[in-house]
Amino acid sequence: MTPQPNALEIADLVMHFGPVRAVDGVSLTIPRGRVTALVGESGSGKSTVGRCVVRLVEPTAGTVRIAGTDVTHLSRRRLRPHRGAVSIVFQDPAASLDPRMLVGEIVAEPLRLAGKRISRRDRDARVAPQLERVGLRAEVARRYPHELSGGQRQRVSIARALISEPMLLIADEPTSALDVSVQASVLNLLADLQRDIGFACLFITHDLSAVEYLADDIAVMYLGQLVETGSRERIFARPAHPYTQALLSAAPVADPVRQRHRQPVLLGDDLPSALDPPSGCRFRTRCPLAFDRCATEVPAQTAIGDGMAACHLVRPDGTGPDVRTADPSEVLS
C-alpha cells in the first residue's frame, strides 16, 4: 500500500513583496484530516502563507504541494483541476462576499470557477444541503449578504469553501470579526464539519483560546519564519521557544482568580520590520534571554518530537530555559 500524500506540504516557502520579506523560508506539513493552527503577531506573514497555498499569490521561492501535487507555479489554467482541493475562508465575511450576488450564487461559485457547467436546478440542489450543513435555512440562498448577520455571513463563506469537498481548508481568522456570543457557534461549526468531513485545516488566528480548542498541531510564526512547531498538548504544556512562552503568558485567561496569579512576560513593544529583519535570531530585539550569539548566528531548528524550536538555548533533548520563570542573568552564566 502506498502511503497517502499529506494534505499540505510547504517547503522553504519565500514570499517577498518588493523589499518586504513577508514570508522567509517556511516549511510546514499538514497530514490529512488534521488541524494545524498558525499563530503569531499581526504582520508576521500568516495570511501570506495562506494566500500562497491557495495561489492567490505566486510564491517567490519554495514549493507548495497539495495532496502530493506541486502547485507552486502552475498557470491559472493548469491550476483549475486542483482548485477544488483547497479552499479559503477569510476574516471579514462582509468584505469577502460579493454584495451583488445572491447567497445561492456565492455558495455555488467555486463550482463555476472549476469550469463545471451546471443548470440552475442542479445548482440549487447542490447549494441547499451546503447551507443546511452550516446551519442556515435553504431560503437564505435567495437573500443578499447584507441581509444577514456577521455570523450568518461567515457561515455562508464556510459553505462556499466546502462545496467543492476540499481536502484542505485555509481558515484565516474566521472568528475575529464576529461578536463573542457568535464566535462559539462558528468554532463549533468548524469543529463539527472537520470531524464529519475530515478535511485538513490550516487555522490562522491570533486567538490562543480558539487555538487550544480547535487545533491538533500548532506552528508559531515570527517575522516571516516559524520559530516553533509541535502538538497542541506539547506547545501548551511545554513551549520551548522564548517567543512562544511569552505569547502564552501574555494572553489573558477569562478567569480573574487564575489571571491574578499569572505573570505576563513583558517584551519590549518595538516590533522589528519585515523590511529589515534583525540579523541572527529575528526575535533577539525583544527576547529577554538574548545574548551575543543571537545577533550573529541564525539559530538552527532543534527537533522536539514531531516538531521543532529554533533557539540557541534549546538543548538537543528539547529542553531549555523558560522566560516565564528564568532570571536572564542566571540562564547565561
Partner: peptide, 17 residues
C-alpha cells in the same frame, strides 16, 4: 461560550448563544 484553557473540540462543545 468562551473556550476555556485545557478544553478541546474532541471532548467538549462550546455553549452557543
Amino acid at each position: 461560550a468562551s473556550p476555556q484553557p485545557g478544553r478541546h473540540a474532541g471532548t467538549d462543545r462550546l455553549t452557543e448563544i
